[in-house]
Design a protein around this nucleic acid. Sequence first.
DNA 1: CTGAAAGCGCTTACAG
DNA 2: CTGAAAGCGCTTACAG
Lengths: 349, 349
Amino acid sequence: METFRNDRLKDRFGNKKITISDVAEALSVSKTTVSRAISGKGRISEDTRQKVLAYIEENDYKPNVIAKGLAQKKTYNIALVIPGDCNLVDIPFFQNSMQGICEEASAHDYDVMLVTTTGNSSANLERMIANNKVDGVILSRSMIKDRNVDLLKAQNIPFVLMGTSRDQNILQVDNDHRTGCSEMVSFLLRNKDAGIGLIGGSKNYVVNRTRKQGYEDAFKIAAIEPNQSLIFENCDRSDKIESAVIKLIQGKVSSIVCMDDVVCSVVLQVLAEKNILVPGQIQVVSFYDSALLKNSRPPVTSLVFDDRALGARTCRILLQYIQGEEVEGRTLLGYKLVIRESTEGGWYV
Amino acid sequence: METFRNDRLKDRFGNKKITISDVAEALSVSKTTVSRAISGKGRISEDTRQKVLAYIEENDYKPNVIAKGLAQKKTYNIALVIPGDCNLVDIPFFQNSMQGICEEASAHDYDVMLVTTTGNSSANLERMIANNKVDGVILSRSMIKDRNVDLLKAQNIPFVLMGTSRDQNILQVDNDHRTGCSEMVSFLLRNKDAGIGLIGGSKNYVVNRTRKQGYEDAFKIAAIEPNQSLIFENCDRSDKIESAVIKLIQGKVSSIVCMDDVVCSVVLQVLAEKNILVPGQIQVVSFYDSALLKNSRPPVTSLVFDDRALGARTCRILLQYIQGEEVEGRTLLGYKLVIRESTEGGWYV
DNA sequence: CTGAAAGCGCTTACAG
DNA sequence: CTGAAAGCGCTTACAG
């Protein structure tokens, strides 16, 4: 078996990069001048500025961000905290928002450090902060009780939550799940048929509670009392979902609202096995539309959110905050209600 | 709407951190001594060493890794490159391996920077490298032609591929897909029934080609000629998968081998719609077992890999390489063949 | 065993 | 408008 050894250690000077001193020397100006030409700070004649910029461009000089950071007591890094043990339904969300975050960060010459947290330990985040490696932190979709929040507050580190919290003192950016869910349930309620079941995942996730509020809002708007026996929360395993579906079938509901796509895919399977037609006998909708449902049969009516935009927006707000700009305490992003076959049954029209 | 402004900018000294100078001064020793006590490099009396360590412990001093890095021309960061636009089936893989990478990196006091690449552009990686922000790079599951590899080679940046490449000159760590797939197909071939269909995703992914080789290996071992008309590659959309399944049903195969879980979930759906019993009429196996299939009915026989261990191992090898240690050119990690209901049909026994 | 000094590659008062 | 100098918080020859 062939082995490798890093030979770069020996000829360190093989790929030596050009520094600000080199530029200064070549141009017979001071490092100060070069620095000013680049940063745009401080007075400098347009002439020398152009001269420096031209030289830099031509010789492909890239300032060392680490050194710059040291001098400015900045790192030009932010941390993204994601749960290492999240469940399937959240994964596409993280994937997409991550990309939005990275793009936005890049655009402002920031980089993103990844922190995974397992269970309720914030050891990794603690280490990252102790090491001074980041200027701020993005927390993703949080649990009801989040230790990371406490840590960040105690250390006075700028952070924003990509998600929703009841804590008014923390910056938050989220998709408008509540309004979206309300609108979707209102759509189902348009004929005043209150036989709408709800199946949701763990109540430990704030987002599930928010969605439930949207469901309730819709009933309030329609001035209809929701039937509590049709609501099944904390269905975090497929057997729980299955038994919920069976009860809803027995209850002869006309629709089943799934709080997320994992729930939805199990619901569809169970309905298929029981030979219940969708939407013929029961309509199905999902509060979240991910790639998971892409191949579902039938395609299901769902709320769609732009997670990538969410990530980008969250990142931008953190960066603004870090730079001392004033930012909104809470930002809510839009949604789209997409009607698909799973609610196209015409029997109720 | 309430707004926020970062007040930390004003009282910078509010949360000033203790530096090596503070420690040195407090102990009436030089910074050199403190540095040596911490790093363990250079001669130092056990006495002073303990004294320094005790003080540090007590006063919670954490060296500034950025400054340390500047002095050593290191960053203590590695970059993880993941495709921003990967398809669903890869997401759980990234999620799990990511965690392994982060844990291993943490254990060696390294941190992980996230780089997402879209399409075939390596602009983000280029920026990260130009900015000197990382000591090395982990590339994840690559396409047949990967521009990042060219970039990294040209710049002479240490990197390892978490995946497989035919290029013998790049460090690679991967699950042993080939042997695993071979063993699974051998299991199906144990009764010399060659009616085994294969449905796979895009051939642009190296991993899909590797899996196919495993399939072929098994036939070779059994001295049976595979029937080319039962092999369907490049099924990257569900309609392609569906038509492949239909042809396989017409071909009266006894088994369908799915190259990944997305393929598998579509296959199961189509079989259910066509009222084909699994495993009664057709057995189904998948080459990769992710959370995606967790709720499948019936549970499917599959290869299971430890992606988290893969990530950790990949990270370790990169770190060793960066430090100048000798490492294996290629490392292959094990797998487990898990027999589940989808192949438990007794008709062929 | 220990320390003064130079240096990593930048920025930024301060002085001119 | 420009530059010398000090400084960010470390490390590391070099000398003692």
